[in-house]
């Protein structure tokens, strides 16, 4: 008989065997191993020819079939005990597995028929709590490159220095550090941009950035981010009272 089989439809070797048995109208308890093996191998060959990415289990089953076939071809030895030779039907294990598999295949089909939530029956929908809290919970630690990118963004935005004032405004890291701490007090977090003024000049960016890094180094704040490329947030890691401590001007060694 012609074999027209769509190989990608089989969940595995057991599935394929069941199909062949049905197709050949065989009794599952009395499989003609030679015939089945021949067809099975043909399909395996076809699979290989098509470069079908099939599971190694198909090959294991092929060798099992060949093994069973060879055993059925061997003349049954004269056994002292008849019962033992009956137990040793080489097909028995395979039949057991086929029946067991068939059982669950059928069960899967009955489960498919059950009224399924979201398909056949519906319950009320509620916005999943994760959607709301995602912003708060899905923080990741900020990587160095993200931080550098954020700094570069800021620097790019800072206005080109067109005027020629010689009077440089003296900003200290310590001052800036204290001002970050002040902004942080009473708050749970600060967005990275919030510690800078609206249009920060280059030296302000540098000093404030340094101050922020100092705070991280001192483990007084930690930087977290919503997913990659998300907003960078500054969180205090110490309790409120400690945030209020003042750091003296020369403690950090910047001048």
């Amino acid at each position: 008989m012609a074999l027209e089989i769509k190989i990608d439809k089989f969940e595995g070797p057991l599935d394929l065997l069941l199909h062949l048995i049905r197709k050949n109208e065989m009794d599952i308890y009395d499989i003609h191993v030679a015939q089945i093996t021949e067809q099975y191998l043909k399909i395996i060959d076809a699979m290989q020819e098509l470069n079908f990415d099939f599971a190694g289990e198909f090959l294991v089953m092929a060798s099992t079939l060949i093994h069973i076939k060879s055993r059925t071809l061997l003349p049954i030895q004269d056994d002292e005990e008849d019962t033992e030779s009956e137990e040793e039907d080489p097909r028995a294990e395979l039949v057991r597995r086929l029946l067991e598999y068939k059982k669950y295949k059928e069960a899967a089909r009955s489960m498919e028929e059950l009224p399924r939530l979201g398909r056949d029956v519906h319950a009320r929908k509620f916005p999943s709590p994760e959607v709301d809290s995602e912003e708060e919970t899905e923080f990741e630690e900020v990587g160095l490159f993200e931080l550098v990118a954020a700094l570069q963004d800021l620097l790019r935005e800072s206005p080109p220095e067109t005027f020629h004032e010689v009077d440089i405004e003296r900003l200290s890291v310590t001052e800036s550090l204290n001002s970050i701490l002040t902004s942080l007090s009473g708050r749970q977090s600060l967005a990275f941009r919030e510690i800078f003024s609206r249009e920060p000049k280059r030296h302000e960016v540098t000093v404030t950035f340094l101050a922020m890094l100092e705070l991280v180094k001192m483990r007084m704040v930690k930087l977290m981010q919503n997913g990659s490329h998300g907003t960078i947030w500054i969180f205090p890691t110490v309790d409120e009272d400690a945030v209020h401590m003042e750091i003296s001007e020369d403690a950090l060694g910047y001048y």
Binding site: A107, M111, L114, P115, R116, G118
Partner: peptide, 14 residues
């Protein structure tokens, strides 16, 4: 998902 009260309500295995 399958609208079962408990596991005993699974369709019986043939």
């Amino acid at each position: 998902l399958f609208g079962l009260r408990d596991l005993s309500e699974l369709p019986s295995l043939k």
